[in-house]
Structures are given as structure tokens and as C-alpha cells.
Amino acid sequence: MKNYSPQQLALRNGQDREEIWIAYKGIIYDVSNSRLWKNGTHYEHWSGQDLTDELKDAPHTERVFEKLEIIGKLTN
């Protein structure tokens, strides 16, 4: 699995490039084709970043990530 830095993830925010990526628990997911992430936002959440700490406030569980394509690992 390919490694990506937080800076590389940040570029995939739906604004700087076509790709829309998010990270959760060190894994990067592609949400580019999700209607819920249109323009790189999903409610008050922004793509291009690690959303691990934000999931506790979500109305869903981490099972939503099972449907998404894994892009790689988030490294520091």
C-alpha cells in the first residue's frame, strides 16, 4: 500500500485536484464518486484531512468506510 503525507492528502480536497480523499485511522479513502462529498465537503467535514477524531460526532459508525476505495496509508 502506498504511503501519503498529510500534505499530499491535503491536496485531494476537491478544490486543488479532482481527487477527493479523506483519512480515517491511518487509512486514506477515495470519496471522489460519493454524492455526499460533492465539492469536497460533507456537512461540516472537509476532505483532504484525517477525520478520525470527528467520527465520534457523526450519526453513523465506521462501517461507512467499508464501501470506499482504499488509496493508501497516511504517514507523518
Rank of each mutant, 00 (worst) to 15 (best):
M1W: 11
E54W: 10
W46E: 06
L74G: 00
L36H: 13
E44K: 15
S5I: 06
P6D: 04
G40A: 11
E62Y: 09
W37V: 08
N3A: 14
D16T: 03
I71D: 01
D30N: 15
K2T: 14
G14W: 09
E62M: 11
W21L: 04
E66K: 14
I27F: 07
Y4Q: 07
M1Q: 11
I71S: 08
S32M: 11
D50M: 01
G72Q: 06
L74T: 04
I70F: 00
L55P: 00
M1A: 14
R63I: 10
N3I: 13
E18F: 06
K56G: 12
N39D: 13
Q7P: 09
I22M: 03
W21C: 01
Y29A: 01
Y24M: 02
S47N: 02
I71P: 02
T61D: 07
V64P: 05
G14L: 06
D57P: 01
L11T: 03
W37Y: 05
L36K: 11
W46K: 15
P59D: 09
K67V: 05
E54S: 14
W37H: 07
Q7Y: 12
I70E: 12
Y43P: 04
T52Y: 02
R17M: 03
I27S: 05
T61W: 10
K73L: 15
K2A: 15
F65M: 04
D53E: 15
H42M: 08
D50E: 03
K67R: 14
E54V: 05
M1V: 12
D53H: 13
I70T: 15
S47P: 08
